[in-house]
Design a binder for these strands. Structure first.
Lengths: 245, 245
DNA sequence: TTAGTTAGTGCATTTTTTACACTAATTACT
DNA sequence: AGTAATTAGTGTAAAAAATGCACTAACTAA
């Protein structure tokens, strides 16, 4: 039995933020180029050490702001990663946080120990520093789940959006094609969208209607027991069956 | 910018295990009476410090075994709690793990720094040490979600069980009454249960059939895209409406 | 005027969910 | 032996939700 507790107080923790955005039909994640050892010069999630006198959640916010310039971002904890050798400087556990933001609403300004901060397309990403590949993957899983369970897709889109944009967002996150008519029927039947009475401009085809997400209405419905639910129902692919005569 | 990393390496982490069981129609949680400061003599979740050279998941297993005698328990991480002042000895982040076990399969043997280890009914529990009330609550939420999404209810029941027992289990976790016929229809339609061709013994009423959960079958179905899903559909309560004449 | 592009819409069928009440099997008691 | 008490077990009709599917509408550019 250890009675000398001092031995336990030799570890550190960090927070790592997985910030998702959506642009040009692709799911993006915000990465920094590290300006400090270990893994200097490599792309990594924006993360850093938690101060001793700082709450975990507050640290995530601060670190994100210091590294990327992002403030006022709602962060949600995902998972703690605690393999012994995941950090070269000693025993470091990291706690991951994730968020969904509208890319256009924010200006990314790398500072602190970040050489650069940039949006990267999630699909086909290169290897990241530390165990950040694993961390990102676990946040992608969380996102997939969240998007089916809560109306969070709207966090990634501009305030006014078309139904096709919304569908593309879902298809990118769920990684499966959805049926246009059924998707629209389902989403509209939830009564969470308000028709803006406006249409797209500057497109070389029939312009689409613009909608807004009505958060007040959503909150009210939730109080009444409403449960957002969107299933991952890919379009069926027709099989050609050979029949032996 | 901190360049002296040593300042960060002065923290500790612990793991706290939330082990659920089910007995006599009640959801139970395994608690220990602490034999060490801080909070000596108080009831708490079985948790302890993670060693510096020990993976987080491994620590959870070891600590559980040392404090309660439980081995070979599958533990799943839930959440990290990191308020600055949650531990009297310094900065300590804790990571919670949870598990579902069959109470009868295990013998609880308090050891290490635990004075006692006992099953407690979750409902109407007294205050626990540290922030363990919060930790327990978050695991209860996780359990509620898990039980609707995965066939984990069986982990809490003996290998052979009746449909009524299973229903009571769900009702205890979801905290709502379910319709008997619809519950049975739904569960049986999933083809996850095998009729044991046996009935209850020693009951003073019509004995119920016994069933087993068929894990192999479940795994096979999952491969084929099957998704366990059980909704929380409480029985509707009839309202007496007064009609003004 | 036409070609190209995306928006937008409906219906019939199938599947799933819901609400609901009586009979069957056993023991305990007299 | 009969009866009361207790829980097990069962089916159906109606409503709601999900599914599969293809054409017309609106706009721009050439």
């Amino acid at each position: 039995m250890a009675t000398n507790f001092d031995n336990y107080f030799k570890s550190a923790f960090t927070v790592d933020n997985v910030i998702f955005g959506f642009d040009e039909g692709d799911l993006k994640v915000l990465l920094i180029k590290r300006g400090e050892e270990p893994h200097i010069g490599e792309w990594a999630l924006p993360g850093y050490f938690v101060k001793t006198e700082e709450d975990l959640d507050a640290a995530a916010k601060r670190v994100l702001s210091e590294l990327t310039g992002l403030t006022n971002v709602y962060l949600e904890q995902v998972h703690a990663f605690g393999s012994v050798n995941r950090h070269a400087f000693g025993r470091v556990i990291t706690v991951s946080y994730f968020s969904l933001i509208k890319i256009d609403n924010y200006i990314i300004q790398p500072s602190s120990i970040a050489l650069q901060a940039q949006w990267h397309t999630v699909n086909g990403l290169q290897h990241l520093a530390f165990d950040h590949d694993t961390i990102l993957e676990s946040c992608l899983q969380r996102l997939k789940w969240l998007v089916k369970t809560r109306p969070v897709g709207f966090e990634l889109l501009p305030p006014k959006f078309t139904l096709t944009e919304l569908q593309h967002l879902y298809e990118a996150i769920l990684r499966c094609p959805l049926d246009k008519r059924n998707f629209r029927k389902k989403i509209l039947s939830m009564n969470l969208l308000v028709d803006c009475d406006e249409t797209q401009e500057g497109v070389a085809h029939r312009p689409a209607k613009l909608y807004k997400f009505d958060r007040k209405r959503y909150n009210k419905l939730v109080e009444q027991g409403f449960n957002f639910e969107l299933k991952e129902t890919p379009i069926k692919i027709k099989k050609t069956v050979e029949v032996s005569s």
